[in-house]
Amino acid sequence: MNRTLLSLLAAVSLVGCASKPKTSSVTDNLPDRQHSPTATAATSHRTSDEDEDASRRAMSPLSADPVYFELDSATLRPESRDMLAQLATGLRERPLTRVTVSGHTCELGTTEYNIALGHRRAAVVRDYLRNLGVEPKQLSIVSYGEERPLTDTQTEEAFRKNRRAEFTFSSKEQATR
């Protein structure tokens, strides 16, 4: 017991005797152009605004328009690539968000063919998002083929709208609240 107390007393006295280094202000090491209060205030204000924007984006729910495809195609259109790039940015900022990409087709073709085509469409979108830096664990796919049309009318316009990939978002963060 005496040894422990003596060791503790020796350690405390050594810490108390340690010399303190000279403290310098934050501006001591900055170049002269940054010493002005306006430059420092502008920098901290901008950083605060950027943090606030990032925080707001992280809290807002994600959404995305459907990705449309040509007949018998699983090739992304240029306008879809731009939208997917924005979606990828949102998903990278929200690592707890999961997205299911569902592939759909019009009713032309057999059921088996349409399920396979819907799968290819969903996989193309998933792979594109992965290539843009979205974590694979955030992405899953499903194919509905022709089973979930946007409209039951059999017009060319209705067929075009049914050739799509759609997004369903969920978040582990929301589930824990």
Rank of each mutant, 00 (worst) to 15 (best):
A116W: 10
R177S: 04
A88K: 00
E93G: 06
S63V: 14
A54H: 05
L91A: 07
Y68S: 06
S24H: 13
V12H: 12
T23M: 13
S170F: 13
P149G: 03
E173A: 04
N29G: 12
T38M: 07
A18F: 09
H35P: 01
A165D: 01
G118W: 03
P95V: 00
L14M: 09
T40V: 10
L117Q: 05
T100S: 01
T153I: 03
V99W: 03
G103A: 05
G103H: 00
D53L: 06
I115K: 08
R98A: 01
E79Q: 15
M59T: 06
Q86R: 13
Q174C: 11
A85L: 04
T155V: 04
A88P: 05
L108G: 06
P136G: 09
T176Q: 12
L132C: 02
A64W: 02
R148T: 03
L87H: 03
T38Q: 11
G16Q: 15
Q138G: 01
L76W: 11
T75Q: 15
Y144C: 02
T151S: 08
G103C: 01
T23P: 06
T40E: 10
V124C: 01
D28W: 09
A165I: 02
S44C: 06
S25Q: 11
T151E: 08
R163T: 03
A74F: 15
S143I: 03
N131S: 10
H104F: 03
R177P: 03
L91I: 06
E173G: 07
T176Y: 11
S102R: 04
D82Q: 14
A10V: 13
K161I: 00
V67H: 06
S60K: 09
D82H: 15
V125C: 05
S25E: 12
H45N: 02
S73N: 11
T153Y: 00
L87E: 05
T168V: 12
T4R: 14
S63T: 10
T110N: 09
L30S: 02
L108M: 08
S36T: 05
T27Y: 08
R160H: 04
T4G: 14
T151D: 14
E79C: 03
Q154E: 08
V15P: 09
R163P: 01
D53T: 05
R164G: 00
P21N: 12
P66E: 11
G133R: 02
V134T: 05
R130V: 00
T89K: 06
E50D: 08
